[in-house]
Design a protein around this nucleic acid. Structure first.
Length: 432
RNA sequence: GCGAGCGUAGCCAAGCGGUUAAGGCAGUGGAUUGUGAUUCCACCAUUCGCGGGUUCGAUCCCCGUCGUUCGCCCCA
């Protein structure tokens, strides 16, 4: 086998799956429109420096997993490992802050990380990224969480849990970090090797360790919540109050630490128990310092990323969405005159708003009927030379087998009636 | 990057050292040159992910490699 394979960790989205993608996009678009968010589209690659400065050189996403390379002009380029940094760059470069007030933006597109592929984890994956820039109000935090929740609910996803935490201001976090290092250092030799490494690199992540002994040590570690400043605490309290107010359930998880450096204050994750090790469907948080750090004016912001492939896994498990195309008419014809007539008829029908598939095989009627049945069409139109001569057509309801003859002119003049009937039949069969 | 499992047709698979690699679903052609989920017939893998080794002989054993799955790490 010498045929060329797709790159490791990438996948083709086949026609059998693309209706699910379309469904997710449609639900997301509607939800976002209802919250007055506007779409922005940014390049899939950027200067490596953007990610190094924005996300943090020490993070795994940048330090270990980024696709970076030199282009032919000697520039250091990277495929984006996430969407927020590029979006913030665009916000600054295009001076969207000059529009004043609050900017609500979203973008759906691919991102890339060089990781070991696993279920729910690919090297090219897709994220819906939603951001609100320019507000430090707790209502902005809650709005962001509410959008994520609404999209997931509308898709019909169940058994999701929302974890909430505050990582405080960068000053709070620095103080906490120092306290953690002080606490863990005496136990250094007892920690698992990953955590020993994290002690210098990212001590907050030790809290998440799955190692048993490490977890025993973690139990008595200082809590981040004790290191929040009064302002941070007030903000966190407000977020909780507002979430409760609009009926969104959550649980506080003081060990929820997000892996990207730019997060401040609110951090949240929505997880599913049906995804194995890659349980996070949606993760996000506040990043009040990022815009300024990337050269823009001081602009508080919060947003989330939602993993589309992981949603697809969950939707496929539910098996709720049909993946067959919605086809109105399958056009069967045989004989030279009939084929000519059917081509013309098909075009006219399409202009009237029908979706029409024409059988091109020229094979026996029996075969064509078989394909008609499989096509998912509601109606079969049959044109032989006899019908072509008489300018008639046989109309067959494929589900019931009911068939009648009518003139082509009548068929076209009754387009609206027929369309309504097709819609009705389709609803009946899909409910059953 | 680390550990483990798996890899036979479009899909689901049996074979586990010995002549032509079961079977099912799907597909294609025909019985049926004007009516479709029935029935019958035929066709559908010179080869078992790829490369090397052991052997008189390898789908089967060994090594490597690629892919995939699960866990770690990380995260969406």
């Amino acid at each position: 086998m010498s045929s060329i394979q797709a790159i490791r960790g990438t996948r083709d989205i086949l026609p059998s799956e693309s209706p699910l993608w379309a469904k997710i996009e449609e639900v997301a678009r509607n939800a976002l429109a209802s919250y007055a968010y506007r779409e922005i589209r940014t390049p899939v690659f950027e200067k490596t420096e953007l990610f190094a400065r924005g996300i943090g050189e020490a993070t795994d996403a940048v330090g270990k997993e980024m696709y970076s390379f030199e282009d032919r002009g000697g520039r250091s380029i990277a495929l984006r490992p996430e969407i927020t940094a590029g979006l913030v760059r665009a916000f600054i470069q295009n001076k969207l802050f000059a529009l004043g007030g609050v900017q609500r933006l979203w973008h759906l597109g691919p991102a890339f990380r060089y990781e070991r592929p696993q279920a729910g984890r690919q090297r090219q994956f897709h994220q819906l990224d939603v951001e609100i820039l320019g507000s430090r109000d707790a209502r902005a935090d809650v709005e962001i969480i509410a959008i994520a929740t609404q999209i997931l609910n509308t898709l019909g996803l169940k058994a999701l849990s929302l974890d909430l935490n505050s990582v405080g201001s960068s000053a709070d976090r620095q103080a906490y970090r120092d306290a953690l290092v002080a606490y863990f250092t005496p136990y250094k030799d007892e920690l698992d090797t990953d955590s020993q490494d994290r002690l210098t690199r990212n001590p907050l992540r030790i809290l998440d360790s799955k190692d048993k002994r490490t977890q025993e040590i973690v139990v008595d570690a200082p809590s981040l919540l004790d290191y929040l400043s009064d302002d941070s605490q007030r903000h966190f309290d407000a977020v909780q109050r507002l979430l409760t107010n609009i009926g969104i359930d959550f649980s506080i998880n003081p060990r929820l630490v997000r892996g990207l450096d730019y997060y401040t204050h609110t951090a949240f994750e929505i997880q599913s128990s049906d995804l194995g090790a890659q349980a996070t469907v949606c993760g996000g948080g506040r990043y009040d310092g990022l815009v300024n750090q990337l050269g823009g004016p001081q602009t508080p912001a919060i947003g989330f990323g939602m993993g589309i492939e992981r949603l697809i896994i969950l939707l496929e498990q539910m098996g709720r969405y049909s993946t067959t195309p919605e086809l109105d008419i399958y056009l069967i014809s045989r004989g030279e005159k009939a084929e000519l007539a059917s081509a013309k008829l098909a075009n006219t029908l399409r202009q009237s708003g029908y979706s029409v598939e024409v059988d091109l095989s020229g094979s026996a009627f029996g075969k064509q009927f078989k394909r008609a049945g499989r096509s998912g069409a509601v109606v079969g139109l049959i044109l032989g030379d006899a019908e072509a001569d008489a300018e008639k057509v046989q109309l067959k309801w494929l589900a019931s087998g009911e068939q009648s003859e009518l003139s082509q002119a009548d068929l076209l003049s009754q387009a609206a009636d027929l369309q309504a009937k097709i819609a009705q039949v389709r609803n009946q069969t899909s409910v059953a």
